[in-house]
Design a binder for these strands. Structure first.
Lengths: 338, 338
DNA sequence: GCCGCCGATGCATACGTGTGCAAGCCAGAC
DNA sequence: GTCTGGCTTGCACACGTATGCATCGGCGGC
């Protein structure tokens, strides 16, 4: 029913090969005939069959992304950024959600690999070994996870300037007069948590502040709520929280029990998920453009697939930006004296 | 490099046709040989080429979904539910985000249609005419939008029991002693807004309450914030808000200006997006299982594609459930007297 | 004027699968 | 014994495209 390459060829008085080349090897065909062909194709509503093309070339022309959990507001933004950039390049996007099940991820990779040319792995929970295995299957770009440290392991990654973001947060609190600051830590096995924690320790030390690490908790709303008591008992006037989801849990718990915010405790989050601005008080946080991360991941895959670009394994991390809202305030006079 | 159907056939001592049928027409091939074939295929790591299969059959074996904006927490949940159910059936899922641009949707449909067998349109902004056009291209199921009213228009839809949800909300407020209740309306052109509004009017009237429609506003955080003043000036002690996103904006604005919640005003939302539990006060709202909506949409498409099922155009709407949190309270004594 | 080269095009084939048709085989009925 | 019919399998071909190779025409250099 739909027009084929032969229909166009016949109408144009050329062979099917020429029509094919007019689209895939434009420089090989005479400009006049090429223009005639594409005009004719347009009028016939011809579009190349991706199935036939895939069969012949072995490529699908599509990209895939695997995320742990779409319910976590972190990931939809990445997917969104990826999808928009992919559309610019003409790649369809296949999506898979692993439901936070690390054991499901390798299977998803294998399934997805058969339908896409390259894969974005967003915060993958799988092991380093499974990761390199996945990268052997298809070109892979990581988002929000470092590449495995092994020798042959050069899985490219889109990273975030965690240190820079933490520095801005600490500097902001310092400027507001806070001198004893806590860091509410997520899971200690998480690489980005460690990055932020180390940056926090360094930044507070460099500024001559007292930096206290509080706990480690699950990087969830519940984990943040669980940190509330420890945060109050720690001798601090402000905390930097590993991420916004935890910060939301922390704020929720504190305000429910009547703790005055930000008077009693200033709070800074990380990620600037859409929820951050809607909390009460609205969360001061470090913004990272998750959409940009998704878009950059597509750029790198596209460069890899087309053979263009230097394909450096570790380019500059994505910049961060402190967004000041209502959850941080100048330290109170009482606290200043204490 | 990957094993083909011929490799399996040769090893098994049968023809390629038999191997093909062993997978797609199991009842046509002798049980013993079929078992031998699938065991052999397993050991060879053979998996049928979806490209070749698509080329031959015209089907892709994949499903697509188009959403207006992944940043709106409503949609990731639908996508998630769809993705999980689709995986059970073995369908890959292609995702497209229209960035709230109604004019982009038809183009996305056309692009997607070439890569999938059927499409889920989630809250599509396109016109009825474009909708029927899309349904002509591929089997379509709507989520959160009614089918066009025309004669030949039988686009199946997964609908939500808006009326039932509103009734529960009004009943809850009534039980708490509220007698003058407002409905903060979204865009009047939205079908689901109208459904909820009408249900609100009916429910309040049936209960002998005073129901007041407040405004209409954009169904966004900003729209909800914009409704704050009107909600305070309206002579009501409680409001039902069109959806949670608006309710979040309303709560944010009210608490920022120091209005006591829920003391001064009880608030009920709709949708139970993940954000709802994290607001201060935590939002009482009508839960609809968005994941279920996505899953049911897949069920219906699968039934349509496999020719099974009665394929009724309008089955029972999805049930709703009131989730009571902290944004509703018994009406105050002062208000009772007034 | 001839040779060789280059740019443009056609021919043929292969990618891996599904499926209509025919053939073979076997059982049961006459 | 023969015929009919069902079950199982093989043969051949087509799906729509990309691409190596051959062809052809034109043009510059000797």
């Amino acid at each position: 029913m739909p027009a084929t390459i032969r229909d166009v060829a016949e109408k144009a008085g050329v062979s099917a090969s020429t029509v094919s080349r007019a689209f895939t090897r434009p420089e090989m065909v005479d400009t006049a005939t090429r223009l005639r062909i594409i005009a004719l194709a347009e009028s016939l509503g011809y579009e190349p069959s991706s199935a036939a093309r895939s069969l012949k070339t072995g490529r699908t022309g599509a990209l895939g992304i695997i995320v742990p959990d779409l319910s976590n507001p972190f990931f939809p933004d990445v997917v969104r950024g990826m999808q928009h950039r992919a559309r610019e390049y003409g790649y369809p996007v296949l999506l898979a959600d692993s439901a936070e099940d690390p054991s499901a991820e390798p299977a998803l990779v294998r399934t997805l690999a058969r339908n896409v040319d390259a894969i974005v792995l967003c915060s993958p929970r799988m092991s380093d070994a499974e990761l390199t295995e996945a990268a052997r299957l298809r070109p892979v770009v990581l988002v929000n996870r470092e590449a495995p440290a092994g020798p042959a392991a050069t899985v490219p990654a889109v990273t975030i300037d965690n240190a820079g973001g933490i520095q801005q947060a600490v500097r902001h609190l310092h400027a507001l007069g806070h001198r004893r600051i806590g860091f509410v830590s997520g899971t200690r096995t998480s690489r980005s948590n460690e990055d932020r924690l180390v940056a926090f320790t360094d930044a507070t030390a460099a500024a001559g502040l007292v930096g206290t690490v509080i706990g480690s908790y699950q990087p969830t709303v519940e984990g943040g709520a669980a940190a509330a008591d420890d945060a109050l008992l720690a001798d601090v006037t402000a905390v930097v929280v590993y991420n916004d989801v935890m910060a939301a849990g922390l704020i929720g718990r504190l305000s429910r029990v009547g703790v005055e915010l930000p008077g009693r405790l200033s709070i800074v989050g990380f990620d600037d998920i859409s929820l951050a601005a809607l909390l009460t008080p609205a969360l001061t946080t470090v913004r990272i453009s998750l959409e940009l991360a998704g878009a950059v991941a597509v750029d790198r895959l596209h460069a890899h697939l087309t053979g263009a670009g230097p394909d450096v394994a570790r380019p500059a991390p994505l910049p961060t930006e402190l967004v000041v809202r209502d959850s941080t305030a100048a330290v109170s006079a009482a606290d200043l004296r204490g």
